[in-house]
């Protein structure tokens, strides 16, 4: 469903992505790991369509469409979802109204009628259970004053509501306590099917105990420098990134 070839991107003068290659097929779970500042969030943002980045080269296909040509909202309509590493607080926009606007905008994009209030509420109740999110959070302003963990949970709740084909979770596990991690992971696993795919950006093996990846990639200095199976994550956990860095200094 997603095919990234030689993607290069910069912000201002600074080049951050130096030729990313990645293939994601329906039904797969990919984990992307890598040291701080290696470009993981940048890759996620570029895929979601953040306009601050300049694309210097390469291409991205999503279900055969040129993803880089699409506006962020069109990408969402096509089935892309990014759970942000740092979800923004939006005072004055109620979580529920926001979700309704999002759900119906995506339905409209797909040529479907808007959900009526009853169906929407029913769906919301169902998905709330899935990630054990409290009703009180939903009547509040979007993410405003939410704790770190509540924000992350809210991201997964949105994902559950929007049912994307490709979900990119950028460090959704950071800041979650053990129980929340299990709940969020269960949610992701429940939503997982042979028709959709997940990219997990994480620093920690413990998430991968819950959501087992088919592939693990290491991003370093804007490149995927190593790919493997879930054993690679265990190796990284044990050895850290120094050996990866050394290998690549040699290459350079």
């Amino acid at each position: 469903m997603l095919s990234i070839r030689n993607l290069e991107a910069a912000i201002g003068e600074k080049k951050i992505l130096n030729g990313i290659n990645l293939e994601v097929k329906a039904g797969e779970v990919h984990a992307i790991m890598g040291p701080n500042g290696s470009g993981k969030s940048t890759l996620a943002s570029v895929l979601a369509g953040r306009e601050d980045y300049e694309i210097l080269g390469g291409e991205v296909e999503f279900f055969g469409k040129d993803l880089l040509e699409l506006a962020p909202e069109e990408r969402a309509g096509e089935g892309l979802f990014l759970a942000f590493q740092y979800p923004v607080e939006i005072p004055g926009v109620s979580n529920t109204n926001f979700l309704k606007a999002a759900v119906n905008a995506i339905r409209k994009y797909r040529g479907q009628n808007p959900l009526d209030a009853v169906t929407f509420l029913k769906q919301m109740k169902e998905k709330m259970k899935l990630v054990s999110i409290d009703q009180s959070l939903l009547s509040r302003s979007l993410n405003e004053g939410f704790s770190g963990g509540e924000k992350k949970r809210n991201e997964i709740f949105q994902m559950a509501m929007l049912e994307p084909k490709l979900a990119i979770l950028d460090e959704t596990d950071s800041g979650l306590d053990i129980d929340a991690l299990r709940i969020v992971s269960n949610g992701v696993n429940t939503l997982k099917s042979k028709d959709n795919a997940v990219i997990l950006v994480t620093h920690y093996q413990r998430l991968l105990d819950y959501i087992v990846p088919d592939y693990v990639h290491v991003l370093y200095k804007g490149r995927i420098v190593k790919s493997g199976t879930k054993e690679l994550a265990l190796e990284l956990e044990e050895k850290g990134y120094d050996w990866i860095k050394e290998e690549n200094e040699v290459l350079v």
């Binding site: 601050d52 990014l82 939006i90 999002a102 905008a105 302003s141």
Partner: peptide
């Protein structure tokens, strides 16, 4: 820009996202 991108990334068209933010500011 940040909140605008957040809303758009959830499928809400740019104009509507702007309107939501402007309305929230005034409200």
């Amino acid at each position: 820009e940040e909140p605008l991108f957040y809303l758009r990334s959830r499928g809400i068209p740019q104009e509507q996202a702007r309107a939501m933010l402007v309305f929230a500011f005034a409200d």
